[in-house]
Design a protein around this nucleic acid. Structure first.
Lengths: 189, 189
DNA sequence: TATTGTTATACTCTATAACTATA
DNA sequence: TATAGTTATAGAGTATAACAATA
């Protein structure tokens, strides 16, 4: 049960004293480096990484309505509107009104969007390959599998799958937490 | 060399079609969930996760000057000023002028800061433990080790260690990339 | 002149709250 | 009344540039 670090900290899996062994710092470092590199690769894509994910969902064909897609991607529905405005203006996706419920709008890729995504996909893949390049083949695949397993679990608990949505109501109100804590305002001019 | 997915994509380690197997989505999901939970745990700590990391460095005793610490944490030096303003006002750290070079200011913990950090440390550890809770002990430690290995590599390549800083000049100018790409401005009113 | 730290300003991103239309 | 989508406004976070003190 106890890992090697527990002797030091007394807490299972506690944050380490050394920065290069801190979980939060490690995942933050990787995430920022990945986002930065992907943003560079997605320079000509509206919405950057977000737009790419929307495009990916649309290519897959199961993007669904704006609302459900926004929930799945963890963004606010208003952000999704802006995102789709940009993607639609670039001719990558289209908003298609749902005949069954005319309040909904389904997101579908255009042919151009499909081609564009195919190109982006390989570029993004190269970024991932570069970031994970330190690890040998075996450990890299292990790491990837574990990462996806953890993410899947987090996703299932934090933001319920779009199907069993009604179970999620446990005091948490809307889409995202406000989190204003950094009260920095000195300049009153 | 080729993983199971390469057959589909043609690119080693390429982003997957399915969202739950996408590297970027996975690490983004974990990172956001972690930050959100940590922010909740660090509600009474100025600067949130950033402030916690500054505090950790100060407790460790090798925080150094504001500049070097900012570089190590990957934040702008102006942000570091605001961060330290808040932490100092809360009585957690102190700015101590460096006798050797009076431009520098060394960051040191107060006794209160040390006690506060000890409490935060265990709370943050619990968050990590909860996020990684799906994985059995063995795989969890494996995942942690691989994560830190990748992060260490990324850190060494992306932002050179504070010592051999002069090697880093390869066209990249300052601290952080601007990255304005999301040209969304419709309201001209 | 270069660098550390500070301050002020502008801009980007996001949240919130209206509003419209459908149900 | 409730929901999907849109729009406008306000706030938080960050970058940029100017500045002061020191080297």
């Amino acid at each position: 049960m106890a890992s090697r670090r527990d002797v030091e900290t007394g807490v299972p899996g506690a944050a380490a004293l050394r920065l290069d062994d801190d979980f939060g710092f490690a995942i933050g470092t990787i995430f920022r480096a990945y986002v930065k590199a992907v943003e560079a690769a997605l320079d000509d894509t509206p919405g950057g990484p977000r737009g790419y994910q929307v495009l990916a969902a649309a290519v897959q064909g199961d993007a669904g309505s704006q609302r459900s897609l926004a929930r799945r991607l963890g963004v606010d529905r208003t952000v999704m509107t802006y995102l789709l405005d940009d993607l639609e203006r670039a001719g990558l996706v289209e908003r298609r009104p749902d005949p069954a419920d005319r309040r909904n709008r389904h997101i579908v890729v255009t042919e151009h969007g499909r081609e564009h995504w195919a190109k982006l996909r390989s570029e993004v893949g190269r970024v991932e390959h570069r970031i994970l390049g330190v690890l040998p083949d075996g450990p890299r695949q292990t790491f990837r599998d574990l990462l996806c397993e953890v993410a899947g679990h987090v996703n299932a608990h934090d933001r319920m799958p779009p199907d069993c949505q009604e179970v999620a109501d446990l005091g948490k109100s809307g889409e995202q937490a406000p989190t204003p804590r950094n009260g920095r305002r000195r300049s009153t001019s």
